[in-house]
Design a binder for these strands. Sequence first.
DNA 1: CCTAAATCAGACTGATTCGTTCTGATTTGG
DNA 2: CCAAATCAGAACGAATCAGTCTGATTTAGG
Lengths: 136, 136
Amino acid sequence: MRLSSMADYAVVTMSAAARHCGMVRVSAAQLAQETGLPVPTVQKLVSLLTAAGLLRSSRGTGGGLKLARPAAAISLADIVEAVEGPIALTSCVDNGKHDCALEGSCTVRPHWGVVNAAMRGALADVPLTRLAETAA
Amino acid sequence: MRLSSMADYAVVTMSAAARHCGMVRVSAAQLAQETGLPVPTVQKLVSLLTAAGLLRSSRGTGGGLKLARPAAAISLADIVEAVEGPIALTSCVDNGKHDCALEGSCTVRPHWGVVNAAMRGALADVPLTRLAETAA
DNA sequence: CCTAAATCAGACTGATTCGTTCTGATTTGG
DNA sequence: CCAAATCAGAACGAATCAGTCTGATTTAGG
């Protein structure tokens, strides 16, 4: 039930990137300085976030990052899924993986889907714009 | 964002134990047979669940387990917390641990509390009685 | 056109945690 | 008093995670 550190850092990094909303070019090193995270860690994070389609990267001298979508269209769920993969509390709800010995006779399985949806909904309800606000 | 296997197994085990609601004595080996889990694993689980106050154990010949409380008074959140510890997505919301470099200037921290409460609420809304129902 | 600097992208290593198994201490019934 | 059956705790191996490093690609300037 605990979020991985990388996912936590990813949220902080995206939040920092959102503050440069109009800025087309923000280097990973600059984000590392603002967030206080190690530079290599931020580099790995931006790679994952870019691969997930949340950031757009420009290489070469003077290159950098920018948000692929408006900050309002990016939620906590998007960021978490980009780093940790699909949100699935148990292997049952992942994508129909049938590696459980109980299978059909399991009475708890149908309820996991409901709980899982509630979890995802709680994360999807928080847009990146709210996280970037300086004042609570 | 994934539940540990032990927590998953604990839910199944508790669900199996709840079906023997009136039975005062249910051995761990019997629960293992009903759930299809390895016997040593179930033994470790019942140790944790007993320590958390969800099960009451009787030792000696003919001993066994029984629910410490009515099944309606046990929720998913209780079981998960018994195995995985307190529900806290990030270290910030655990118990005021101040190991984050950002500390006061972190804009995302106040929102974690809200999300965390939503998560816990989703788990607390599912009582053990519903999980033990044979038909969905 | 070429050189050089700066960037992202992928691969590797060490450590921590998780899952499993095993052995021992305790208790009750005969 | 003896013996069987149970729970409780400790030890081992495996897998995942966090962090670091080196290399490939691209752009700006000379």
